[in-house]
Design a protein around this nucleic acid. Sequence first.
RNA 1: GGGGUUAUAGCUCAGUUGGUUAGAGUGUUACGUUGACAUCGUAAAGGUCACAGAUUCGAAUUCUGUUAACCCCA
Length: 884
Amino acid sequence: MQETNIPKVYDPQSFEKKWYEFWEKNKLFHAKVQKDKKPYSIVIPPPNVTGQLHMGHAMDNTLQDILIRFRRMQGYNTLWMPGCDHAGIATQAKVDAALREEGSSRHEIGREKFVERAWQWKEKFGSRIMYQLRSLGSSCDWDRERFTMDEGCSKAVREVFVRLYEEGLIYQGTRITNWCPHCNTALSDIEVEHETEMGHLYHIRYNVEGTDEYVEIATTRPETMFGDTGVAVHPEDERYKRLVGKMLVLPVVGRLIPLFADEYVDPQFGTGAVKVTPAHDPNDFEMGQRHDLEQILVMTNDGRMAENTGLYAGMDRYECRRRLIEDLKSRGVLSGIEDHEHAVGHCSRCDTTVEPMISKQWFVKMESLAKPAVEAVKNGKIKFVPERFTKIYCNWLENIRDWCISRQLWWGHQIPAWYCDNCGETIVSRDDVTVCTKCGSNHLRRDEDVLDTWFSSGLWPFETMGWPEKTEELKQFYPTSVLVTGYDIIFFWVARMVMMGLKFGEDIPFKHVFIHGLVRDSQGRKMSKSLGNGIDPVEVIEKYGADTLRFMLITGNTPGNDMRFYWERVESARNFANKLWNASRFMLMNLEGFDKDFVPEQAEYTLADKWILSRYAHTAASVTKNLENFELGEAARSLYEFIWNEFCDWYIELSKARLYDKENIAARKTAQYVLGYVLEHTLRLLHPFMPFITEEIWQHIPHEGESVMTSLWPDGENGKIDAAAEKNMTAVMETIKAIRNIRAQVNAVPGRKSEVILFFADRSLKETFVENKGYLASLAAAEPMTVWTDSMVKPENAMTAVVSGVEVYLPMAGLIDVEKETARLTKEMINLDKEIERLAKKLSNEGFLAKAPAEVVEKEKEKQKGYTDKKAAVQERLTYLAAL
RNA sequence: GGGGUUAUAGCUCAGUUGGUUAGAGUGUUACGUUGACAUCGUAAAGGUCACAGAUUCGAAUUCUGUUAACCCCA
């Protein structure tokens, strides 16, 4: 157990892997169903199998791991369900690219082979991501690892699809959807990102049939004019009233289209007349429905002009736009081009400009699903942390539109719908179908499309627990305790899970939604592949250790807000780990004669012992409270401050005298006990944040149990809080700092002892200082310590400082620098005057005295007295100096 | 157009129910390797808490408005 030879420097590489394997091998992450224990469960936001872990994952999983490890130590039956997502479009794109490298393509090898390739991809990259999660320290229950396309999830997806279809909540329809010509698939509304772009507004004249008159329209997408089936104006627009009902001649094409009136048209915009292309614009589509207009599709799925565009057929949509503009110009019907700023939709996956166009797709009716999902949040069953995301979530669900769920991809859950070529029947079924249920024909074709990836992700909290079977896991772990995710997928994922959970899981999927922000680069930019500014968490782990990365990610950051990545901050976290490492090393080097059964008598405790135990108790309470409130950053900060500024800077220093003195056995044993107690318990508190280093140290120092991760969370330590010890110790510490300050002022030779004379305005402190004068000697080189009493004359040739309750005099051998000393004290005087004045004003304020709580008034009065006493002492000193 | 976030030390950020001489890390300056740690220690400098009002005995903290940056939705 006793080891004095541990490395001088924190070296995470030497132990992180070892401990992870130890935990995993001993199944410490595994959650059995145990009905008598309180459950605490989290399902991981499944990373895409496409690639690798990025900094956002590192952040997300660090937060989850902290919560899980904390609750596990608190005694909950804790489940963290891991897994990954098949990520339809993204993965298909990756596999496509791999095939292209080989000079092949998905179309060449066919669907079956392609899907095989995608599975191979999944095996390779899925396991890589899971490995990366392990290197971060994530305490997931790997025995339960799931994948959104595994057998169980596929079964759940089918069940949900069929039930929704049977209830009429899933339907097939020909509607305007957002089409990505690059990914070659339809997208849902939220997969489109709108960016404001500078474009042009083209003014084109459409002749009124049989006259020389024309109507001028304005459009941003002239190439869609091949699909125009009308021109609309506002019914009250005087400019056009007399022309409504007339036919117009579509330029270039020559087709006749009606001019009609519709309330939708904004007479202020452009010329007040809009071309109507029902097959290529959502608003036009609706006008088309109202006015019974034909829908003419003029583009192909890859963004080229269709056969019906004559000379332009086969041309890219933008090439067509350029040529068409030239053509219109030469025909003299192009009357103007204005610069125009407008929002253009882009594919969130590949950034290609999406083309709104009609196609036949599957949709989910959202209204009835969204209502209970809003209700669950409004009535507080589900709570967002931070609370402000509630509004964002509710607003979105309250204005939700139907969800396009079919994708023209090969990688994903194929839609369980079959079409009968014989009678035209559509059959949706849980099991594969070979015979038409209506006409008995076996000429069936399965729908080729797959489902939106988020359709299966939406079932994640319960599909991973065995739904639709009524499993023990569901009974114990559903609803889950908390969902931890970024604000960027509240709509994509959180909202869908709530809807699906309420509908099929028969309860909310989670009680809390803990939202975090994005990790940005040091300039505040989003990390992205195209910018090349991403930082690989694995690189950070290899260089600095997972604990360092974890600690860096959760400090200096508050819930829901973005954070910037700085290497300096990584280093600062690493230094903290090193500090802890060396504090432990100090203890290990002083373990000789450690008696694990020894517990000191109360009387054996020194002031420092009582003080550090009290400070530790405060820390334990605040860490617990902050973790329970999802204030993980605050929790980590309080541990940082306790470990560094109190335990290391003061307690270790103060324990040295007793530890080095091998004669006084009782004192040495007490110091060892307190050091051991505080360190061992602090390691437990820190374990959720920095699992590896805490385990490594914990295993070296005296402990009981097999792992710090299964040790009990420190609780009920409040008995150790000792207000008197804290007050007295604070006075000692302040005095030490004051002496050091003076010594620095006069350039005292470091280490050379000098006398200090103390005068106690607060008499109760005298005894404390007499008993603990060793503290002043060792930490401020102040020796001997003389106590001045009222009857004596205060020392003259000395430097002075005043701290609460204590006047400090440092006699000077030579002459003191009167000028410098006067300046220093004058500055102090000014500060004190300012405070005294402020307090005087406050304390003479009738309102304050009458309305503020008595304890606040009392506190202010005490402050006032403290400052006044200090001022008197400083004044006295200044008077003395002036007389020299 | 609607909604939201942010504005605190040179930089990055804390500051959780209103009462602190407003904090940390980093950077800067001076000094220092005595047996945990130079990935360190000691000391210091550095802020009108964006601006203007309001509420209150009391505002960095609550409310309103303004300005600036960013984000989401339409």
